[in-house]
Design a protein around this nucleic acid. Sequence first.
DNA 1: GCTTAACCTGGACGC
DNA 2: GCGTCCAGGTTAAGC
Length: 315
Amino acid sequence: MQTFTYDQRYFNLDDTLANGQVFRWQHQADGWWLGVVEGEVIKLRQDGDTFTYGSYPTTDNFALLEDYFTLKSDLAAVHEVMQRDPLAADAVARFPGLRMMRQNPEECLLSFVASTANSVPQIAKGIDAFSAQYGTLIGESGGKKLYTFPTAQALAAADPDFMGQQTGLGWRGINVVKVAKQVAAKPSGWLLSLREARYVEAKYELMQLVGVGAKIADCVCAFSLDKGEAVPVDTHIFQLAVEHYLPTLKGKTLTDAAYNKIAAAFKERFGNYASLAQQYLFYAHFTNYWGGKSPLIYGANNGSRTRRTPPRPQG
DNA sequence: GCTTAACCTGGACGC
DNA sequence: GCGTCCAGGTTAAGC
């Protein structure tokens, strides 16, 4: 085990790992986070400005953490830009240490295909199930076996019935196989090479995959391809954008035109920090929805979603 | 260019 | 206990 220090105002582990960028990290009762990154088991915890970590099989792989959590990027500058907008400023005040992560693009893409119109706890459960089936066992902690995220090749050859029924993902699991087949058919390193492409080109390339629309493409661009201007517009972002930025969209559905208007509104306000602004606002809205705390920290059964309809008056 | 329905499943919620 | 609704979307058809 090793330690490093980082100003907790600019790095909060709970908010970074539970804001919906990733689904496989597990928060343990004793405060440790347990995850698998690029084939390495990572154990990590935060006590104020002090971070304690260990990794396997590469011992204490700090370089991996530095890249994965983008620790060299300056969050103070981001906070300054967020002050331009009252809603973003409020979200930053609540979650100052939320950082943009830099995931493996293949894992990011296939995870978000599995996330389509699904609840976060179900997504995490489903991804866990197919990783245990098609990933590689690399360790064990507290009686829990840890697997790598399966490669696109492995998921391309996966049994669609298993992916649909045994994972609880239904048709989403079958879509994961379809997208994995298309990725596996591309030249090696194709996805990673999109880090070098311009945002519009990377997004266009991703949307050529059947089963990948604008939202999933933007998630991959923002969370794994270094595209700070990508704005994934999901149901949460749509709701808050209509309420605070674009009231003319009230009563409309999320069409391509509406999607692009919302993304443009974020870019206009936050420029190259649009992705992070989106993530701050998403997390604020999302945690409100889950009763003030993320189900990725506390579990779906320990939080409760906000009521769809107000409670009946008593008496 | 917009709306709508279908796609599977599990869990929350209302009654 | 049961029925209904909905969840970090995508696609295709119909208008």
